[in-house]
């Protein structure tokens, strides 16, 4: 099992990959055998297959439970080593809240920083650039840290038909996967809306597969007083966020695993 470590060893993902391939292979075998169920030669096969499939499924379930359990636990080892950080900018008010939070986090610890915004949102990255420039001014140098600014395709734009959105969703997921492999974040900061879901899902998938451990922090928008947003609900219910923060006490009562932190704005 791959534990919760900051720095993963290079070879640690190999067995995990092998396991994931084996799930595929066995489930394939099973479907073949059930099609040819009349053939007496194959009668002994299903029991073995069943055992293997059950074992694999239980291992995967155990692994997911292990990941979910350790995700909710803080790191026990103290360290000042900077962590590679992915910051997902929502748009409008979401971006403003995120930059407000970044202003009080120690930037030198969250480094390098990668900003992602939806391809249709042309304001957010501009605001992030202004924020990064102000950090550079404070440091008094231009050479030190550099931040990266990236755009991501959205799976569905407002008003897009559901038929075409199948294609664009697949495209968006592939793009998100590519970005996640490139960025290799150890920390993900997000606050909705939907843009963050494919990236968080891939990060969680990578954790389960043992490819990379990243800590996912989700701060629900101040605009959400009574109900979590759809992104918030997905991350909460599926245990995908390591920590989910809410800004109103009513929300914490409704979602006890969330942490109430007061208004950020």
């Amino acid at each position: 099992m791959i534990g919760k470590k900051r720095i993963k060893t290079k070879n640690s993902n190999k067995p995990r990959f092998r396991q994931s391939f084996s799930i595929f292979r066995h489930s394939e075998t099973q479907s073949v055998s059930s099609h040819k169920g009349n053939n007496p030669c194959l009668h002994r096969m299903p029991i073995n297959v069943l055992i293997i499939v059950t074992t694999v499924i239980s291992l995967v379930v155990l692994r997911i439970l292990y990941v979910v359990y350790w995700s909710s636990k803080p790191f026990r080892t103290k360290s000042t080593k900077p962590v590679s950080t992915l910051i997902i900018l929502g748009s409008g008010g979401h971006t403003a809240e995120m930059l407000n939070l970044l202003a009080v986090l120690q930037a030198n610890r969250l480094s390098p920083r990668h900003y992602i915004a939806a391809a249709t949102d042309n304001m957010s990255l501009q605001k992030a650039r202004v924020f990064e420039d102000s950090l550079a001014d404070k440091r008094g140098d231009q050479t030190g840290e550099t931040a990266q600014f990236l755009q991501i395709y959205r799976s569905r734009e407002v008003g897009q038909s559901y038929v075409t959105s199948v294609g664009t969703t697949i495209f968006a997921i592939a793009h998100a996967l590519l970005l996640m492999m490139k960025i290799k974040p150890q920390v993900i900061l997000c606050n909705g809306p939907g843009t963050c879901i494919p990236l968080c899902a891939i990060a969680f998938f990578f954790k389960v597969l043992g490819i990379r451990w990243s800590s996912i922090f989700y701060v629900e928008s101040i605009a959400r007083v009574k109900r979590l947003s759809l992104s918030g609900i997905i991350l909460y219910k599926l245990h995908m966020a390591d920590q989910l923060f809410v800004q109103w006490p009513q929300l914490q009562k409704k979602y006890p695993r969330a942490q109430y932190v007061g208004c950020l704005m």
Binding site: F75, V83, L264
Partner: peptide, 19 residues
């Protein structure tokens, strides 16, 4: 009264094992 992002920043720092 303006809100404060410091409490959540502290929680994130602590969670990640930063002093």
């Amino acid at each position: 009264e303006s809100g404060d992002a410091v409490p959540v920043a502290k929680l994130i720092n602590r969670f990640l094992g930063f002093p």
